[in-house]
């Protein structure tokens, strides 16, 4: 996406199952976007393929979930874990969304990653990043 990028080996994560829709892509570099809560997930094999990730807690402080035992085992998670959401940038910036239903979970020690699905969590694949402000603007806060 931005020409040649040098990537350290420690930034490369294996995604043994790929990502839904990109099942063949099993190796990605995690490239932090400095001074922002964003990172790029860049396919190692396909240089034209990258995703923008964000720490979901930056925009949805109440976001929480329990990682299933199966996912923990698959990711060989012992202590360290990192969580990101895939960002879908809309041509109208304020309609941009993040995927809270299927976060990208990383094990930084083993450099393993998986997009896990939070079954029956009530979270959405297209959560408005600026949802709260939209609500403020329409003053529909309160209620349920």
């Amino acid at each position: 996406m931005w020409g040649e990028v040098e990537v350290q080996e420690k930034e490369i994560y294996q995604f043994p199952k790929g990502l839904p829709g990109f099942e063949e892509e099993t190796e990605f570099a995690l490239i932090p976007w400095e001074d922002t809560p964003f990172s790029y997930l860049q396919s190692v094999r396909e240089k034209e393929l990258s995703f923008l990730l964000v720490s979901p807690f930056t925009f949805a402080p109440d976001y929480s979930f329990e990682l299933s035992e199966v996912d923990k085992e698959e990711l060989q998670i012992d202590e360290q874990v990192a969580v990101f959401s895939l960002v879908t940038i809309h041509s109208q910036a304020n309609k941009s969304t993040m995927n809270l239903l299927a976060p990208v979970v990383l094990n930084p020690e083993k450099q393993l990653g998986k997009q896990v699905v939070l079954h029956q969590s009530g979270y959405d694949t297209r959560h408005l990043i600026w949802a709260e402000e939209e609500e403020d603007a329409r003053s529909v806060k309160g209620g349920v």
């Binding site: 996406m1 839904p20 829709g21 990258s50 995703f51 895939l86 879908t88 940038i89 995927n99 694949t125």
Partner: peptide, 15 residues
């Protein structure tokens, strides 16, 4: 649900 995640991922790809 899988289809929705695939769609969202495809839309997220390479902004």
């Amino acid at each position: 649900i899988y289809a929705a995640i695939q769609d969202a991922n495809r839309e997220s790809a390479t902004p």
